[in-house]
Design a protein around this nucleic acid. Structure first.
Length: 430
RNA sequence: GGAACGGUGGCAGAGCGGCCUAAUGCACUUGUCUUGAAAACAAGAGGGUUAAUAGCCCCGGGGGUUCAAAUCCCCCCUGUUCCGCCA
């Protein structure tokens, strides 16, 4: 949520900033929010004046009774009663406008960072680093899509996954399954120096999913368990962001760094028929997420840290990668500034997004009501949140199968994963 | 799923529907005293909203009764214990 105080003091700058996203109707939504806000303040001022009178009268009733002045207390009670009716009407109006304001605010996206590049879509995302480690010529044996190699190796069984769960589910077997788990453990271990490992719930409440910005706008993307009013998480970001919801943190304890392996569930509502083969897109996948809760001052440096950590995994895995910055027209609604790490997969001849690192400024934290207190100062401020995939398992899995494929059809396992593979150093057809 | 009892300020823990503007203790801050500290004494101290040091709101959450609710009523969430079921 954007800051209503900024909405009051400088709506023009909000409009100018959001115009960079190139979305229609945003200026009208800002005006609407402004109108609701000023009405709300007007109503609450009137209501509070009346409440003040009622409070006074009630105290008078108490003391008049004690003094035995029954006639006077009856009079005060009557007065208070009629004020109460007015108060009820104003309160009803307040609640109505408050809901309207919130509905508008929840749908207004975050303001992009001044340094975020302008653009209208993903074709405008500038490559800010790399390609790194990209061979000039890939061997023919690397030009095989991972689904073909995986079938030869017997480590991917999407037909049976479909039998079990329907289309767009994946299932790895044998060393393929082990490789998925190895990637998770590797990613967690690489960040365990400063990140606390969390194993959060994968089913969350509506309030939790709203805080990250996935609701109300993107309800179609999430799996709902209606009977229990729960949602399956689309990313570990969701429970981790809400972990400190409603709390006030001490400045001295910031930044808080958390990481989690979680399954991620996505309906892929708009993507039917796209990337149907292999491991590039499915309804359920594994991911290791890293997240930071910070002061505004700490955030720019943390953004770089999170990118560097995601990047270092690709370096360790010796996969060719590049980093792109997300332009204003392609940025997620909650994002303030974002970078993607893409790995090159020679078999598909595609750059695969394996990590997305974002700074949300105070947008999510205001929705989740996470605050911090500066040492020695009164009051509190909204924290900033940042997060990124350390590693999205299926796409890295796919990239390994393509980059590490050898002439005899076997696939080498990256050195850094050997400790997690029960001694296996390669995967061969049976 | 069933039953019983709980949810109050950083913590502990009181609180007959009206001086609750929430007692008391511990912890905290500042001052006095002291070379310094401890102790003692004194004072102070939360958050939200607001232009505001005014007002309003905050005793798990939401409704209701009342002139007035931490206190009474209803619903929900949550904790502990016991029973049932279960990995």
């Amino acid at each position: 949520m954007i800051d209503v105080r900024l909405l009051r003091s400088d709506p023009a700058s909000i409009k100018a900033s959001l115009a960079r996203r190139g979305l229609p109707n945003l200026a009208q939504q800002i005006d609407q929010a402004s109108n609701f806000d000023s009405r709300l303040r007007d109503i609450s001022a009137q209501r509070d004046t009346i409440r003040s009178s009622i409070n006074d009268l009630s105290k008078q009733v108490g003391s008049l009774r004690r003094e035995g002045k029954d006639a006077d207390s009856e009079k005060a009670m009557g007065e208070s009663r009629s004020l109460g009716e007015k108060e009820r009407l104003l309160q009803a109006e307040f609640e109505l406008v408050n809901v309207q304001l919130r509905d508008v605010l929840l749908n207004i996206p975050n303001l992009p960072h001044v340094d975020a590049p302008n653009g209208s879509g993903d074709h405008d995302n500038p490559v800010v680093k790399g390609p790194v480690g990209l061979a000039e010529h890939f061997l023919d044996c690397q030009r095989v899509p991972h689904w073909q190699t995986a079938t030869e190796l017997g480590i991917l069984d999407n037909e049976r996954a479909t039998k079990i769960s329907g289309a767009m589910f994946a299932m790895q077997r044998g060393l393929g399954a082990t490789l998925s788990r190895a990637l998770c453990q590797f990613a967690l271990d690489q960040n365990a120096d400063v990140f606390e490992e969390i194993r959060p719930p994968s089913l969350v409440t509506t309030a939790t999913l709203t805080a990250t910005g996935h609701l109300p706008k993107f309800a179609d993307e999430a799996y709902a368990i209606e009977r229990d009013d729960l949602w399956a998480i689309p990313t570990g970001e969701v429970p981790l962001t809400y972990l400190h919801a409603g709390e006030t943190l001490e400045e001295a304890n910031l930044p808080v760094r958390l990481m989690a392996y979680t399954p991620c569930y996505r309906r892929e509502a708009g993507a039917a028929g796209r990337d149907t083969r292999g491991m590039l897109r499915s309804h359920e996948f594994d991911k290791v997420e890293i997240l930071a809760i910070a002061t505004p001052e700490q955030s720019p440096e943390l953004l770089q840290e999170l990118v560097a950590r995601a990047e270092s995994l690709m370096i360790e895995l010796e996969l060719p990668y590049r980093i792109v910055e997300i332009c204003t027209g392609d940025m997620g609604a909650s994002h303030h500034r974002s970078f993607d790490i893409e790995v090159y997969a020679p078999g598909c001849d595609a750059w695969l997004e394996v990590s997305s690192v974002s700074w949300f400024s105070d947008y999510q934290a205001r929705r989740a009501d996470v605050r911090f207190k500066r040492a020695g100062q009164k009051g509190t401020e909204i924290v900033h949140t940042l997060n990124g995939s350390a590693l999205a398992v299926p796409r890295v899995w796919a990239a390994i199968l393509e980059n590490y494929r050898q002439a005899d059809g076997s696939v080498r396992i990256p050195d850094v994963l050997h400790p997690y593979m029960r001694g296996a150093t390669e995967m061969r057809p049976k």
